[in-house]
Simulated assay, not measured.
Amino acid sequence: MKATVVGLVTPHVLKLIDLARQAETGANVDWHVRDAAARTLRELGEQFNARELLVAYVKGLQSAIQDAGTRRAPAYMAALQTAFQLAVRELAKLD
């Protein structure tokens, strides 16, 4: 089985979307979001094509944020933006 960028990144983005949905219902997920994002950044950063994977991860989070628009609760957006900011910082380290 051949691993693809989509196959490696999508589960991580979906995990954060799930956490954002929990935040939308009132759950305190800040620590879980930060932990999931840090774990993702560590796992993707260990791959030989880490930069490509992190770019795809950032784009996936950015797309989820844009798709949510104003239709979602502020807590939902905050959870995704926290993960997005952490990923952007990590990506900047690779430059």
Rank of each mutant, 00 (worst) to 15 (best):
V5R: 07
L8V: 11
H12Q: 14
L14M: 10
K15M: 07
I17S: 02
D18G: 14
D18R: 15
A20Q: 06
A20L: 03
R21C: 06
R21Q: 10
A23W: 05
A23P: 13
E24L: 00
A27K: 11
V29G: 03
W31F: 09
R34D: 00
R34N: 02
R34Q: 05
A37D: 01
A38F: 05
T40N: 02
E43L: 07
E43S: 09
L44M: 08
E46P: 01
F48W: 08
N49S: 11
N49L: 07
A50N: 07
V55L: 10
V55C: 05
A56S: 12
Y57W: 13
V58P: 04
G60Y: 03
G60R: 08
L61F: 07
Q62S: 14
S63T: 13
S63A: 11
D67Q: 15
D67K: 15
G69Y: 06
G69P: 15
T70F: 08
A73W: 09
A73D: 13
P74A: 04
Y76F: 15
M77I: 15
A78V: 04
A79W: 01
L80A: 10
L80P: 13
Q81R: 15
A83G: 13
Q85A: 09
Q85C: 00
A87W: 02
V88T: 12
V88W: 01
R89M: 07
E90Q: 11
E90G: 08
L91E: 04
D95N: 12
